[in-house]
Amino acid sequence: MSLLVYLLPYDFSPLTVLSFMLVLGFYGVGLLRMPDEERPGALRIFAFILGVMICYGVMQTRFDYYAQYMFFVHRGQHLILHHIGPILIALSNPLPVMRFWHSRMSPGLKNAFRPVGWVYQVLQYPIIALFLFVGLIYFWLWPPIHFDAMLSRDLYWIMNWSMLLDGLLFWWLIFDPRPPAITSSLGYGRRMLLLAAAGVLQMLLGAWIVFSRDMVYDVYEVCGRAWPLDPEVDQLLGGILTYIPPAMMSVLGILLILRRTMHEDGKYTNHSKKLQERAS
């Protein structure tokens, strides 16, 4: 019984549960039905499911209760929704599953989805993507906005969902597995620049919270904490969670992209050179 209390949602959101069920359902059925040679390996499937499940866990279990009444738990929640979960999902490369479902879609349905594609293209424009990724963190942590978001149930859900969706968009842009040399995906140099810029901007905000002497986020004070933790300690821990792990994610991302650059170095240029040689 007590275990159930920890696993069941604090604030049940049918839409959230349904979305997660649909994502896992489509992924699972896609895996089973797709041709064997295209199916992702066990590690990739594990990474995808883990990424989805930790996002679900911070939104629809008892974790959410603590996230609502403790600043540092809230920062941990956003670290998972905006970084770790989406990173795992992007690295798991669910593209083959998506391609499978895309091939099964009727032309009419494909047409209906076209506007979604347009919005996606605009959102994945690098400057917009960076602006949204960092802007959303700043926006929801802007003290008056943060205060309202923690008081209003609707705003709270909009906040968490916007963080998750934007996290997916940004990290997919960064870890898009299609090589930019032969596809339209973003070039590796630009990806690293985006990561560096996002890292620095998040560090500025994190440092500001960590080194603030007075209470910046007093909504937790006003509305009661989940347990009696010293407010300054709560803010300090929350600041550290905004400051250090996101910066580490950026560095880690840059390393992964560098590795891929080295791996692909010469692979496609040689190919084009050969083509040139053959032409001349």
Partner: peptide, 11 residues
């Protein structure tokens, strides 16, 4: 308490 986005706890 939940309706008004607050909580309480016992020591």
């Amino acid at each position: 308490a939940k309706r008004y986005r607050t909580t309480f706890g016992y020591e």
